[in-house]
Structures are given as C-alpha cells and as structure tokens.
C-alpha cells in the first residue's frame, strides 16, 4: 500500500483549471517533487495534501486512511512542513523553536550540516540573508523528526553548496519521505519521483 496516494484530483482557481484527474502515489522513502511552470498549482497541490486547501473533486489517502475532517489532525501529526516565505514567521530561530516546543539540541546538528553557525539561532531574521533564513527554518523543520516532510520550494534561496548540503542531509535518512515543489534542476534531479503538472 502506498504511503500517500491521490485519485482523480482536480482543482480550479479563479476559473482556471490547475489540474484535472490527477492520480499518483508516493511510497515510503520516496523523494518526490512536483514540477511545472509557475502558476500550474504545485504549491496548491502540496497544500491539498496537507488539508489546507480543499480539492474540487477526487480524494487523497495516507495509507488506507482518506484525508478528511476526521483524519486531518491524526495525519498532521506524522508530517512536517516548510512553506514558502519563511521570513514571515518570527523574529528569531529561537522564537520559532519556542513556538514549536523544540529544544536547540534537536536542530543544532542539522544547522551545522546545512553550513550554518549555531549562533544563527539567536540572530534576528532581519539580519540573516535569504539563504541563511531558509536553511535555518529547514534545519528546524527537519528537527521535528517526522516520517514525512513537505518542502515548498526548499532551495529557492540556496546556492549550489547549500543545495548539496541539504540533499546530503536528506539522503542520510532513507526512511524519510519527502514531498516537495521545485524549479531547481539540482533538486529535481535528486528526487526519485517527479510528478509533472
């Protein structure tokens, strides 16, 4: 049985059909990426899988459990999520840790692997570069240690070194299932499952 599967999903936005009859499955340990031009619904699809956006038709399942108002809380306990626009979150990484109820020890190793100094956790987001912010929030999200991780454009502000560091960190955990969106050829190449919209 697939870890995540969709059946005949469809979604329109402002009269424009984003996708229709979209069916795919993601297995445990897959590194999946949604690819397509801007405005084709990659982020919308990711949000549909998380229960943030409702589908116009079709269904989404986690194992044998359909994503519904009954199951959404249970399913969300198994996932972690890195949205776009990470700079809107909080003033510092430390504040974000507090909001999520995480200890620094659970993210410090990830920070080092993502080429960040540990002191970045105390720095104001406004003082960090776009790439540093993205790596910091990614390190925190990975620190949640969930079996499924949703990454919305995780490399949008990263240079090639940082992208390689992120791929290396994720590769170390073959059990981890990644569902992502990206325009980055390096990241797309890294993922073993490509779902084109």
């Amino acid at each position: 049985m697939s870890l995540i599967s969709t059946s005949k999903l469809c979604k329109s936005y402002n009269g424009k059909v984003l996708f229709n009859n979209l069916s795919f499955s993601i297995e445990k340990g897959d590194k999946a990426v949604f690819v397509g031009d801007s405005g084709t619904g990659k982020t919308t699809l990711l949000r549909m899988l998380l229960g943030i956006v409702a589908a116009d038709c079709g269904s989404i399942s986690y194992g044998n459990q359909e994503l519904s108002r009954m199951s959404v809380d249970k399913i969300r306990k198994q996932v972690a999520y890195l949205p776009q626009g990470v700079d809107l979150f909080a003033n510092t990484g430390e504040e974000l840790l507090y909001l999520l109820g995480l200890d620094f020890s659970s993210v410090s190793q990830n920070m080092v692997r993502l080429l960040l100094s540990e002191s970045a956790i105390k720095q104001q987001f406004a003082e960090l570069s776009g790439g540093e912010k993205q790596r910091l929030v990614t390190a925190i999200v990975l620190g949640l240690n969930r079996p499924i991780i949703f990454l919305d454009e995780p490399t949008s502000a990263l240079d090639a070194n940082a992208v390689n560091a992120l791929m290396s960190l994720i590769s170390d955990n073959p059990e981890l299932t990644v569902v992502s969106t990206s325009h980055n050829p390096l990241w797309v190449e890294f993922c073993n499952k490509k779902i084109t919209l």
């Binding site: 998380l50 943030i52 969300r76 306990k77 996932v79 972690a80 999520y81 949205p83 776009q84 626009g85 990470v86 809107l88 979150f89 909080a90 909001l99 999520l100 109820g101 999200v141 949640l144 969930r146 949703f150």
Partner: peptide, 14 residues
C-alpha cells in the same frame, strides 16, 4: 495575511 505562520505551527504539530 500571515497564514503561513498559522499553518506552519498547525501542521508542524501544534
């Protein structure tokens, strides 16, 4: 306007 933060916390286990 800052629904990213809300969903970030909600989906990440809060």
């Amino acid at each position: 306007t800052n629904q990213n933060l809300y969903y970030f916390l909600l989906i990440n286990g809060k």
